[in-house]
Computed example of a mutant assay.
Amino acid sequence: MNAPPLYRLAKLSPSVLAVLGSPEPRIYPWGENTDKTVAYPYATWIEVSGAPYNHLAGRPSVDRTTTQIDVWAKAADPAQAQRMVEEAATALRDAIELDCYITAWRRHPRDPDTKVYRISFDAEWQLNR
């Protein structure tokens, strides 16, 4: 199965590079942000579901997959952290939404222990085999 082109599309976006770092944006598969010093904002992604696009006759030519994208931000000023997470989530959305369907948005409260803000959204991709 093909992986969604999230990272490739994000790297092409000047807006994403401006908020998530350049030349390599801070976008990691879930659980793989191993930076010794975490730089905010950053994004993580994980494929949460997938299925072939079946037909009555013949083999499917497309696989559908849903990717959950989480954007994280933290700053000394809570208002600044909230702006950072919103700006990064918007930049990612704008970078990918012409190649997928955004199917869900989730705004999470600030984590009381870590003080990290998070916005999640789901992207459904139809990937040619």
Results as ranks from 00 to 15, higher is better:
residue 104 A to S: 11
residue 122 D to Q: 03
residue 46 I to E: 14
residue 101 Y to K: 14
residue 75 A to I: 00
residue 93 R to W: 08
residue 123 A to R: 04
residue 39 A to G: 09
residue 108 H to Y: 11
residue 40 Y to C: 12
residue 54 N to S: 10
residue 104 A to Y: 08
residue 54 N to E: 01
residue 26 R to W: 01
residue 111 D to I: 05
residue 74 K to D: 01
residue 43 A to G: 05
residue 88 A to K: 06
residue 29 P to K: 04
residue 35 D to G: 11
residue 121 F to A: 02
residue 117 Y to M: 11
residue 26 R to N: 00
residue 115 K to C: 10
residue 109 P to V: 00
residue 80 Q to A: 15
residue 65 T to W: 05
residue 43 A to T: 05
residue 68 Q to P: 02
residue 100 C to Q: 09
residue 108 H to I: 13
residue 66 T to M: 08
residue 36 K to V: 15
residue 30 W to P: 01
residue 35 D to Y: 11
residue 90 T to V: 07
residue 68 Q to Y: 09
residue 129 R to F: 13
residue 118 R to S: 00
residue 124 E to P: 04
residue 63 D to N: 15
residue 47 E to Q: 13
residue 50 G to N: 10
residue 80 Q to L: 15
residue 115 K to P: 02
residue 118 R to N: 00
residue 62 V to H: 05
residue 103 T to G: 07
residue 56 L to E: 02
residue 112 P to M: 10
residue 38 V to N: 08
residue 48 V to W: 06
residue 109 P to D: 11
residue 127 L to C: 09
residue 37 T to A: 15
residue 50 G to D: 09
residue 100 C to Y: 00
residue 86 E to W: 02
residue 93 R to L: 06
residue 122 D to I: 02
residue 121 F to H: 00
residue 41 P to D: 02
residue 101 Y to T: 13
residue 103 T to W: 04
residue 42 Y to D: 02
residue 105 W to D: 11
residue 48 V to N: 10
residue 120 S to P: 06
residue 123 A to V: 04
residue 116 V to T: 11
residue 94 D to W: 11
residue 92 L to W: 05
residue 62 V to N: 01
residue 31 G to P: 05
residue 123 A to Y: 01
residue 89 A to H: 03
residue 119 I to H: 03
residue 101 Y to Q: 14
residue 81 A to F: 06
residue 105 W to G: 04
residue 105 W to S: 05
residue 38 V to H: 10
residue 47 E to V: 14
residue 57 A to L: 11
residue 77 D to H: 14
residue 52 P to K: 03
residue 34 T to R: 14
residue 42 Y to K: 01
residue 122 D to K: 03
residue 31 G to I: 03
